[in-house]
Computed example of a mutant assay.
Amino acid sequence: MTDQRIEGAVTETGGKLQNGLGRLTGDSKLQVDSKLNEIKGKAQNAYGRVIDGLDGMVDKAPADLRDPARKGLDFARRKPLVTTGILAGAAVLLSALGRKR
């Protein structure tokens, strides 16, 4: 289990607790913040699940590709936001290349 999954679960649970406290006290700002924390936690957890899945795939990769793949996964673990930005940028570029004009 990756650190992202653990942090995501903690953040999501904290958001749920905040939401309960916000409803109990009638604090709408706390309720909004709690929803943002729940979403953030779910996103972190999802990212961690993807990293865990890719980790299993690296173990099955050909021997000559395992080391570069491990380095890429280590980068993704250390820099989740940068990795997400890189993947989003690549998706935008590929979708633009795939459009017919």
Results as ranks from 00 to 15, higher is better:
T2D: 05
R5P: 05
I6M: 11
I6A: 14
E7V: 03
G8Y: 01
A9Y: 02
V10T: 10
T11W: 01
T13G: 02
K16Y: 05
L17F: 06
Q18C: 04
L21D: 10
G22H: 00
R23D: 10
R23C: 09
L24D: 13
T25Q: 06
T25E: 09
G26A: 08
K29E: 10
K29A: 15
L30D: 01
Q31V: 09
V32Q: 14
S34Y: 02
I39Q: 09
K40A: 14
G41R: 00
G41D: 00
G41Q: 01
G41Y: 00
K42P: 07
A43D: 07
Q44G: 03
A46M: 13
A46T: 14
Y47I: 06
Y47R: 01
G48W: 01
R49D: 15
V50Q: 07
D52K: 05
D52L: 06
D55A: 12
V58G: 04
P62D: 14
A63C: 06
D64F: 04
L65C: 10
L65T: 14
P68L: 10
R70H: 07
K71A: 15
G72N: 10
L73Q: 03
L73V: 08
L73S: 06
D74F: 13
D74V: 10
A76V: 05
K79A: 11
P80F: 02
P80H: 08
L81V: 13
V82F: 11
T83F: 05
T83E: 07
T84V: 12
T84P: 05
G85L: 09
L87W: 11
L87Y: 11
A88S: 12
A90L: 14
L94Y: 02
S95P: 02
L97Y: 04
K100M: 07
